Simulated scan of single mutants.
Amino acid sequence: MDHKTTLARHVNASPDKVWAVISDIPGSAATLSGVDSVQMLSEGGYGEGTRWKETRTMMGRAETVEMWVSQAEPPSAARAGTTTVKALQGGADYTTRFILAERDGGTDLTLTFGAEVVKPTLLSKVMMALFGRIGMSMTRKMLARDLSEIAAKAESL
C-alpha cells in the first residue's frame, strides 16, 4: 500500500544555491513556515547519516518526526544533485527525494514524496482507503508551499 506524489518547479537560482537551502537543516524552521522547530541529532554538515527531529503542525496538531538523510549527491557541472530523506512514523515509511537539475541559468527542482505502510493490517488498509487520498492532498499542499519557500530563499541568496 503505497501513496506517492511528485511536484516540480523552476527556481531562478543556481543548483548550488538551491542545494544550500535544502541542505540547511538547522535553518529550515526559518525558511519553511510549516516547520515549527528542528533539533539536530548528529554533528557535521549535510550528508548521508545526518539525523534530526522536525516538528510540524498539521490540522492543529504538532507532530515530531525523526528524519535522516539516506542519500546525498550535491549538484555539479557534470550531473544533477539528488538527496533522499527518510522517516519512520506510526507504522509508515516516508521517503522524500529532491532532484536539482540546471536549466536556463536556474534549477528545475523536483520533489517526490512517498508513504508506504510497513506492515499493513486490515485496519490500516481500511484507513488508507478512507483517508489516504485526503492525507495525500493535504501533504501535497504542504509540499507545494515548501517548494515555493525553498525557491524564494534560494532566489534571495
Rank of each mutant, 00 (worst) to 15 (best):
M1H: 04
T6E: 09
T6M: 01
T6L: 01
T6Y: 00
H10L: 05
V11S: 02
K17H: 15
V18N: 05
V18L: 08
V18S: 08
V18C: 08
W19Q: 06
V21H: 05
I22R: 05
D24Q: 14
D24V: 12
P26K: 05
S28D: 02
S33H: 06
G34D: 07
G34C: 09
V35G: 04
S37C: 13
S37T: 15
Q39A: 15
S42N: 09
E43R: 05
Y46V: 10
Y46R: 07
E48Y: 00
T50R: 10
T50Q: 05
T50N: 05
W52M: 09
W52H: 13
T55K: 10
T57I: 03
T57M: 01
M59N: 14
A62D: 10
A62M: 03
V65S: 15
M67H: 12
W68Y: 06
P75D: 00
S76P: 00
R79E: 02
A80N: 04
T84R: 05
V85F: 09
K86D: 07
K86G: 02
A87T: 09
A87K: 15
A87I: 11
L88M: 13
L88D: 08
G90S: 12
G90Y: 13
T96E: 13
R97Y: 02
R97V: 04
R97T: 10
F98E: 03
F98N: 06
I99C: 06
L100D: 07
L100R: 11
E102R: 15
E102C: 14
E102D: 14
G105F: 11
L109T: 03
T110W: 06
T110P: 08
L111Y: 03
T112A: 02
F113G: 03
F113C: 09
A115P: 03
V117K: 07
V118I: 14
V118N: 04
P120V: 01
T121C: 09
S124H: 04
F131M: 13
F131E: 06
I134W: 11
I134C: 08
S137I: 05
T139D: 09
R140V: 07
R140E: 15
K141L: 07
K141H: 02
K141G: 00
M142T: 10
R145T: 15
D146I: 11
S148D: 07
S148G: 11
I150M: 05
A151E: 00
A151N: 01
A152F: 03
K153D: 07
K153A: 13
E155Y: 08
